[in-house]
């Protein structure tokens, strides 16, 4: 390795550390400080406000539902993409990436156009059968599913490719049928990638804002998620409450980061 000269090294170090400090570290630190400015009152006030509690509960519910759906869908699609051949496979593998580069607002609009009860392509039919999607929990789940869709797939596909299918073939030759092979051989081998994908999806689902905002009518206590209530509280000059909810969301993210950091080496062993 060719070493850089000392002044260059220090300059580069200063740029890197300075940039990250002013852009990320200090602002996040300030948030935490402001949350605890009056001791624990911000947090306790927020956690005794029934609207905040129901927003947090809704976020939890929506995130868990979306993660479960994406887990099943993601593992299925990954298996199909890596282990099978079918027409349109290349197109599908490109399409599952699309949600990563679509604006959340556009995601929301797309869902509204199809599922709104007034003139949506499918929404009117569903509404006639008493099912509301937009401005209701199903819409929140769909919006969240959409934005987090590729995360599990992106973790699982490389690992599936890497482990190859010889172990699966060996299992087949030893008498295991397809489901037995999947549960006993494939799933244990991709376990950490799946867990990793789930953690990423969870963090993304908990934090989704734009797409959710479009499909929610933002009614406190009913369709207002935690991220929506951060905005609402801040705009209503309830800054302490906004900080408290934001702090709780940050904690979820920090926990995800820690889990991911702990899993990282295992994924590659």
């Amino acid at each position: 390795m060719v070493s850089t000269s000392t002044p260059t090294k220090w300059a580069l170090r200063a740029v890197a550390v300075g940039y990250v400090f002013f852009l990320v570290a200090w602002p996040v630190g300030l948030l935490i400080r402001r949350t605890f400015e009056g001791g624990l009152t911000n947090l306790t006030d927020a956690l005794t406000d029934s609207n905040v509690v129901s927003a947090l509960a809704l976020t939890g519910k929506v995130a868990v539902a979306a993660v479960l759906i994406n887990l099943v869908f993601g593992v299925t699609i990954s298996m199909l993409l890596v282990r099978y051949d079918f027409p349109g496979k290349r197109v599908l593998s490109a399409l599952v990436d699309v949600p990563l580069s679509v604006s959340p607002v556009v995601v929301g609009l797309a869902l509204v156009l199809v599922y709104n009860g007034r003139d949506g392509w499918l929404g009117t039919g569903l509404e006639d059968n008493g099912i509301s999607v937009i401005f209701a929990t199903p819409g929140l789940v769909m919006a969240t599913c959409f934005v987090a869709l590729p995360l599990v797939i992106r973790e699982v596909v490389p690992v599936l490719t890497e482990i190859g299918d010889e172990q699966e073939q060996a299992a087949r030759s030893l008498g295991a049928n397809a489901p037995q092979t999947f549960w006993r051989i494939t799933l244990p081998s991709i376990k950490w990638a799946v867990v990793y994908g789930v953690v990423l999806s969870l963090a993304r689902s908990v934090g989704e804002f734009g797409a959710v905002k479009v499909v929610s009518d933002n009614v406190a206590g009913k369709t207002q998620t935690a991220t929506l209530s951060v905005e609402k509280s801040y705009q209503n000059f309830a800054q302490g409450e906004a900080y408290a909810i934001a702090f709780l969301l940050v904690m979820v993210c920090v926990a995800s980061l820690i889990v991911v950091a702990l899993l990282r080496p295992k994924v590659h062993d």
Partner: peptide, 8 residues
């Protein structure tokens, strides 16, 4: 394969 009783 699982019905052939072969060892591979």
């Amino acid at each position: 394969p699982q019905k052939r009783n072969v060892g591979f």
